[in-house]
Computed example of a mutant assay.
Amino acid sequence: MKKVMFLKTTYRTFSGTKEIVELKNKKSTQWIIYRDNKPAYFVDFYDLDKESNAMMNSLVLCNKKTIEETLELINKKNNVNLSIPKITRLGYKKKIKSKEIELDLGPIPEEWLSYSL
Score class of each variant (00 low, 15 high):
M5C: 02
D36N: 13
Y34W: 07
L23T: 00
A54L: 04
Y11N: 09
A54R: 12
S52D: 12
E19I: 04
K27S: 10
C62S: 08
D49P: 03
F45E: 13
K8N: 04
K8F: 01
D47W: 04
S58E: 14
N37R: 08
Y11R: 01
V21D: 01
S15I: 05
G16I: 09
I20S: 02
I33S: 08
L48G: 10
P39V: 08
N63V: 04
D44C: 03
K64Y: 15
T17A: 02
K50D: 08
M5R: 02
T29G: 11
S52N: 10
N37W: 10
Y11F: 08
N53I: 01
F42V: 03
F6Y: 13
F45L: 12
K26W: 14
K18C: 01
M56W: 05
K38R: 11
E51W: 03
Y41F: 11
D44P: 02
S52R: 09
N53A: 06
K65Y: 13
M55W: 10
L23I: 02
N37E: 09
Y11S: 01
R35S: 02
L7H: 06
L23G: 00
Y46P: 03
Y34S: 01
T9G: 03
C62Y: 06
F42T: 00
K18Y: 00
V43C: 15
S58A: 09
L7S: 00
S15G: 05
F45W: 14
F6C: 04
R12C: 13
L59E: 01
T17E: 11
W31D: 12
F45S: 11
L7R: 05
K50V: 10
R35P: 02
E51N: 15
D44W: 13
F14Q: 14
L48I: 09
S58N: 15
D47T: 07
E51R: 14
F45Q: 04
M55A: 15
Y11V: 00
A54I: 08
K27W: 06
V21P: 00
M55Y: 11
K38Q: 12
S28M: 14
K8G: 00
S52I: 07
M55R: 15
L7V: 00
I33L: 03
K24G: 06
R35I: 03
Y41C: 00
N53P: 06
A54V: 07
T10I: 10
I32T: 10
S15H: 06
A54P: 07
R12T: 09
K8Q: 00
Y41Q: 07
S28N: 15
N37L: 08
K38W: 07
